[in-house]
């Protein structure tokens, strides 16, 4: 899923400083699962913002609404009747949400309350890690199901680099060197020879480098 972190209170307060009445919109998709922008977090943020603004002597009115998904035009329609009753709309969805909202309601202004970070999952309660960089051509089968594109700090297709030490990446002692893990797995399973293959440079056209991407499923297009 998509993992995000909430922006700092200071940053959010600064974004909405000129507004007296806003709509705070959450999303029941990924951001609910990673506890950053679901119904609960929308409620909490609304309270904090109201308290902060009251303290500043500049109270704000905030209505709350959490959509099924902000990345789906069908659910984006759910605020059609109310969107123009506010000075601005603050979205707690990933970066996709406020964009779908902006496109559906061009006359309104939308602000992001979260920083969208990566595709990953929870490795333990409260900790999420990156697993995929959406490169558009998955090659993890070459690396025993582990992705060096997303998980090696240098996206090396032939690692580990000379900075790998004690299973950690050269950039920080709390970052796993995924190449160490790949190599150890291959060695344990007696398939080190797999890593003796020289691979061609990756074709990044399927990644963001090829420009904004689209996925067309002909059979579904009406």
């Amino acid at each position: 899923m998509i993992i995000a972190d909430r922006k700092s209170l200071e940053e959010i307060l600064d974004m909405i400083k000129d507004f007296k009445k806003i709509l705070l919109v959450g999303c029941k998709g990924c951001v609910t699962v990673c506890n950053v922008g679901g119904e609960k977090e929308v409620g909490v943020l609304a309270v904090i913002l109201k308290i902060a603004r009251k303290k500043e002597g500049n109270p704000i009115e905030i209505d709350e609404k959490t959509l099924e998904r902000q990345c789906d035009p069908e659910y984006v329609e759910q605020i059609r009747d109310i969107f123009d009753q506010y000075d601005a709309v603050l979205s707690m969805a990933c970066g996709v949400g406020p964009q779908f909202l902006s496109e559906a309601y061009p006359s309104q202004r939308f602000f992001p309350a979260v920083d969208t970070k990566f595709f990953g999952g929870a490795v333990q309660h409260g900790i999420w890690e990156e697993r995929c960089a959406g490169c558009g051509t998955c090659v993890i089968h070459h690396y025993d199901g582990l992705c060096p594109i997303a998980r090696c700090s240098k996206s090396l297709q032939h690692g580990p680099c000379g900075g790998s030490a004690d299973g950690k990446c050269e950039i920080a002692k709390d970052v796993e060197c995924i190449w160490d893990t790949i190599v150890k797995k291959k060695m344990e399973q007696g398939r080190l020879e797999d890593l003796r293959t020289i691979r061609a440079p990756k074709d990044w056209q399927t990644a963001r480098d090829g420009g904004p991407r689209k996925s067309i499923r002909e059979e579904l297009v009406q």
Binding site: L156, G162, R199, A200, K202
Partner: peptide, 24 residues
């Protein structure tokens, strides 16, 4: 060479390229 990660250097804000790696 692959090159040290930019995190070590004096412009850690920069984008890293790594279009190809040292072996490529």
């Amino acid at each position: 060479l692959s090159g040290d990660h930019q995190k070590f250097g004096n412009h850690p804000q920069s984008k890293n390229v790594f279009d190809i790696d040292s072996i490529q």
